[in-house]
């Protein structure tokens, strides 16, 4: 697992979450900016998943492989589903959906880092 990438993903997800909350607070619907940011986040998560899978195949994985794979699949699935679900709602609550995803991703990536380092 590449720590700079993981930390970058956490920061990006948090920024997306905060911008989404702000958009909701300002009573605006989803804009393209949030969608593009979600796309970048998803791309990063896919790259991270690729590195993780490569490491696991080489046998460099941690003990808790199953849990790690579970979190990895979760992070990859959440942004596209959130984008789909958020775009369908043309009101302030669309970006609020994205905020939920934006707060879920950092938690999951953080747990993945812990598992990878064998902390938990």
């Amino acid at each position: 697992m590449i720590d700079p990438l993981a930390i970058g993903l956490i920061v990006l997800a948090l920024v997306i979450a905060l911008v989404s909350l702000l958009t909701t607070a300002l009573n605006k619907a989803m804009g393209n900016l949030l969608l593009v940011a979600l796309g970048v986040l998803e791309l990063g998560l896919l790259i991270q998943a690729g590195f993780l899978i490569a490491a696991l195949v080489r046998g460099e994985g941690p003990e808790e492989t199953a849990t790690l794979i579970g979190y990895m699949l979760g992070t990859v699935v959440i942004p596209p589903v959130a984008a789909f679900w958020g775009v369908g709602e043309r009101s302030r609550w669309g970006p609020a959906v994205i905020a939920v995803a934006g707060f879920a991703i950092p938690g999951m990536v953080g747990r993945m880092m812990q598992i990878w380092q064998g902390v938990a």
Binding site: G74, V77, I78, V81, A82, W85, G86, G88, E89, S91, W93, G94, A96, V97, V100, A101, A104
Partner: peptide, 16 residues
């Protein structure tokens, strides 16, 4: 719909 969409998202994340 509306705020219900957010609830669906939260419940889905918890289900996952």
């Amino acid at each position: 719909s509306g705020p219900g969409r957010v609830l669906v998202a939260v419940y889905a994340v918890f289900a996952l």
